[in-house]
Simulated scan of single mutants.
Amino acid sequence: MKHITIADVAEHAKVSKSTVSQYLNKRYEYMSEQTRKRIETTIEELNYIPNSVARSLKQKSTFTVGVIVANILHSFSTQVIRAIENYFHENDFHIIVCNADDEPKKERKYIEMLLAKQVDGFIIFPTGGNLDLYESIKKQHIPIVFMDRKIDGMNIATVMLDNEMATSLAIDRFVESGFDRIAIITMSIIRNISPRVERIEGYKKALSRHGLQVNPAYIKTADVHDIQQVIHELFITEKPPEAIIAGNDIVLAALLKYMKENNLKIPDDVAVIGIDEVQFASFFSPPVTTISQPAVEMANRTVKLLLDQINNKVNTNETGVVRLQPSLIKRESCSRIDKSF
């Protein structure tokens, strides 16, 4: 079959190649409605597919953005990616989504691959293990925005949650319900992953604000494979916690699994609040109170920041951290049970 070119479209529609090019770039103000309809019909009849490589060379843009997620298993990550894809689709950009699995080596390979593909910009949920590559992207003036996590000293535009506020909301809710032995479980903080570190810091500050002592035994962090073990350690302490904050959706799922396997009841044996709204939280029995992140708003702010850099509306050296506020979704998992009768 003959490869249909822009010249074929122009000849069939009886217009110039430049007019077809203007149509393809949605510059409709340069043509009549009749001409626009004729080109549209011709493209359908000839089954013409624009040459993206030629377009990229001409406009010096690939209309592609690389999105590197630290861990795609998080419900927050999938919500954000969906919203990012929607926003870019509306602006005629494609995205390449890569999952780093929280492994710096894997993240490095993806960054190098995306650089070779000459993407127009990066949205990265950084693992924190490739400072040289982040700096290289910045020095080359390639648009870049960090999402969910910040790297101190990098001066790269970042959109993330007010993580201290997230744990503060949880502590306030527990204290309001009459609990004072409150624990927190997060994923590993070995690489100083900022949301995890900040949530623990917010937990400590909120306890102190309520006049409660911070018990180091109630602060647990672990890799995903060791989460069940640290949960077990909490329950076999001399004074087990009355309430637990699950630092993200993966921790919450592990905690609920442990409690079910050990016939522990919520909130009779321990009250629970999870950070990250997940579908199962609302229909679990009892429904689980969560701290919700504004995923769509965070995604939209991130994409806008990147597109502003791509379109030269802001300098890639302009930096800052944009923090959005969490919200408490009250359910039945943190209501104290009156056992006096």
Rank of each mutant, 00 (worst) to 15 (best):
Ala10Asn: 11
Lys17Asn: 13
Glu29His: 15
Glu33Ala: 08
Ile39Tyr: 06
Glu45Pro: 02
Tyr48Cys: 09
Ile49Val: 15
Ile49Arg: 14
Pro50Ala: 04
Pro50Tyr: 02
Pro50Gly: 09
Ser52Val: 03
Ala54Ser: 14
Lys58Cys: 09
Val65Tyr: 00
Gly66Phe: 04
His74Cys: 02
Thr78Pro: 01
Tyr87Ser: 12
Phe88Pro: 05
Asn91Ala: 13
Val97Cys: 05
Cys98Glu: 06
Lys105Leu: 11
Arg108Gly: 02
Ile111Glu: 03
Leu115Val: 03
Leu115Met: 15
Asp120Val: 07
Phe122Val: 05
Ile123Trp: 03
Tyr134Arg: 10
Val145His: 01
Lys150Tyr: 02
Asp152Glu: 15
Val159Cys: 02
Met165Thr: 14
Arg173Lys: 15
Ile182Leu: 00
Arg196Gly: 11
Ala206Glu: 05
Arg209Met: 12
Leu212Trp: 06
Gln213His: 09
Val214Arg: 10
Ala217Pro: 00
Asp226Ser: 13
Phe235Asp: 12
Lys239Met: 14
Ala246Asp: 12
Ala253Thr: 12
Glu261His: 06
Asn263Glu: 13
Val278Asn: 03
Gln279Asp: 15
Ala281Leu: 07
Ser282Tyr: 00
Thr289Pro: 01
Thr290Ser: 14
Glu297Tyr: 06
Glu297Met: 10
Met298Lys: 12
Leu307Asp: 06
Ile310Gln: 05
Val314Leu: 07
Gly320Phe: 10
Val322Asn: 02
Arg323Asn: 06
Leu324His: 02
Ile329Pro: 08
Lys330Val: 11
Ser333Glu: 10
Ser333Pro: 13
Asp338Ser: 11
